[in-house]
Nucleic acid binder design. Sequence first.
DNA 1: ACGCGTTTGTTGTTTGCCACAACGTATACC
DNA 2: GGTATACGTTGTGGCAAACAACAAACGCGT
Lengths: 407, 407
Amino acid sequence: MATAGRSGVGTNQEDVRRHNLGTALGHVHRAGRISRAELTARMGLNRSTIAGLVAELESLGLADQAKPSGTRIGAGRPSVDVKARTGAYVLAVDLRVDGLTVARVGLGGVVRARATGPVPPDHDPYAIADSVVDLMRLVVRDVEPNAALVGVGLGVPGIIRGDDGLVRLAPNLGWHDVPFTKILSERLGPIAMPVLGNDADLGALAEHLRGAGVGVDDLVYLSGEVGVGAGVIVGGRKLEGAGGYAGEIGHMPFLPEGKLCHCGARGCWETEIGAPAIALAVGCPAEQVGALGEFLEGVHEATPDLRVVGRHLGRGLAGAVNLLNPRVIVLGGYLRSLFPLVREDVDAELQVHGLAAPREQVLVTLPGLGGDSVLHGAAELAFEPLLADPVGRLATACLDVDSALAG
Amino acid sequence: MATAGRSGVGTNQEDVRRHNLGTALGHVHRAGRISRAELTARMGLNRSTIAGLVAELESLGLADQAKPSGTRIGAGRPSVDVKARTGAYVLAVDLRVDGLTVARVGLGGVVRARATGPVPPDHDPYAIADSVVDLMRLVVRDVEPNAALVGVGLGVPGIIRGDDGLVRLAPNLGWHDVPFTKILSERLGPIAMPVLGNDADLGALAEHLRGAGVGVDDLVYLSGEVGVGAGVIVGGRKLEGAGGYAGEIGHMPFLPEGKLCHCGARGCWETEIGAPAIALAVGCPAEQVGALGEFLEGVHEATPDLRVVGRHLGRGLAGAVNLLNPRVIVLGGYLRSLFPLVREDVDAELQVHGLAAPREQVLVTLPGLGGDSVLHGAAELAFEPLLADPVGRLATACLDVDSALAG
DNA sequence: ACGCGTTTGTTGTTTGCCACAACGTATACC
DNA sequence: GGTATACGTTGTGGCAAACAACAAACGCGT
């Protein structure tokens, strides 16, 4: 409030412990396996304090200590490794127009089981929620005893209200003000409260934590699904905006008298680099637009029309570079297949329209997690409460999901 | 790092005290005067803890306790007021093309003295630094004894590198990679290390803390000086980007084949709503473009050309709304004079190009601090280290600036 | 094989900060 | 003027991290 980065609220002694325990767990979660010495260095705390924190994580069933993992350098007593116990897990859901993926992801970010299914053709939210639950049953079937479900996260291609997870608008699904969080939570009951996130936001989160943006605190994930959205990480935090709607970069004004966009305006960026525009440029049949990425995989040369799209992409990215000054821009969705074809055109426009200072810092690249960015992001979203307060979250975790879902 | 909002570093017990003391001081600074009971409520700490913190602030010479300030409601013993002692102060500088302002600003945000002067006509950085120091001498002339200078902040109309305060580019001053922080710091010597900020960023900071955006955590300050820049507050923090360059919204691509911009590109937003474009629309003579705001004060009706500018303004703002989802957009600089003339046009375009969800939340308004936003922002920037660590910063504060500047 | 330096884990003690409870005090309200 | 209410003050206690000293485990050189 008063100063940048301070909420204005004081810090309790209890908060200190919670914060440190959560931070320690966060490091373990991110690294999967990390030595206590490394933890000590990263957190800047005393050895004995770290020992206490690790012991508590162990007693909570969140981490195990193990013999040092081979490779060492230099003298001295080898440090004990701390590794994430995958018994604490989340369920992650990637809801797309062209398919549904559910995964069980253990602490440490390991996908332990996954299942995919079709999306009910009419995109009925209730039917989709049923499908999600069906797939969840599959991935928790062989879960070990005493494993604790600590969260459920979903990636949805739409505008999500931060307060309550209402889907304000999901054009590709034809949704408008659909209370999907509520619908799903009724089916999950006491298992866990699901958390919804915009697909691009989750892509950004995942790439920041485990993909092409590890160690990068300023990152833009541009998601080409049918429309174009962005997830933004600034200063290591998600850019959310007042209502959680931030990132709708596809609707930046781009052409004064351009094509009509589904949002009602003319000339949105999305009308030039969205799936329909690209489909037109490469001759992709209308019924395959939903799977444009796969179609683009079969294209090996950029047509002049496609190169125009590439230039539009570059010019729009320049706007993001000038306004947000990211260090990395990750191109996800079908842009993953498009970018290699038009890289030079993108770079050329970026060179022209990007200001020198921010342009020099930015790297445009492909997702480090391939097509799984959103899925991993949904998992990370679900893990967040655990990392914010391990003890508190674990108290409400569900231990027997298998039978709870069966009933 | 691991979770949103956590840097990955642990919290020390010493950190707790520093944080709480700084937060308490931040509240006092923001409010100017606040009761201990209110402090207790806002910080969520115990009464006795607050008593200790306030006592320490008092002994540091940063705050005074005083009798309750009259108006009360309800029963009970009245709470003692804590008020900022303006003896701790900063020097704030607003450097513009058309003039130089230096102010002595006390803790609490009160301007205790101010002085203005012309900018050397050739914009020579060394001459400007000399002018700044001259004006500083004036404002510290009548400073009370034992007053401590805790910081120097400057607003500069340009792109500032976050690391070292190098001015990468200041088109209106004709600067390119000018180490102005270094130049000024050589003149100030041990008095204080000056901190530079982009003018729009500082405008945003000031409006967030003391202007039209008090209590608003997501805000955009759009600054119309000669070019157009933005300062952005997201989630209560400054949007800085990887190198501190974020916010150059004037160079968003806006028209595919627009006018040539000084940045080298064509069709930047700035070419349509920058001072030259507006001057053309209202018939402002070329030599008065630097003081376009004053000229616009004399305009009482929007010409068709001006209304076109208004629509461009609205369309560009819609982009900011869609991407950043702010709750408040503050229009500063000459936009302050322009906006009342073209409000309907701006709103109309915002209506068309803004997505419903973020559009419903945003309010476009004028600065609460009038033309002093940047000056106040510079002061707040200078206060930041004090609020982050009162004891540490005070240890390096300068107590006799008057004679130090004389030498 | 052995000793040495180095690094880390462990243990017990100390320090520092906040919470809490009990009491004193100052106001509003009846 | 009595009472309820809210706040300041004081002393006590608890808790978490720092610290110091020692033990343990390794590399390295002789």
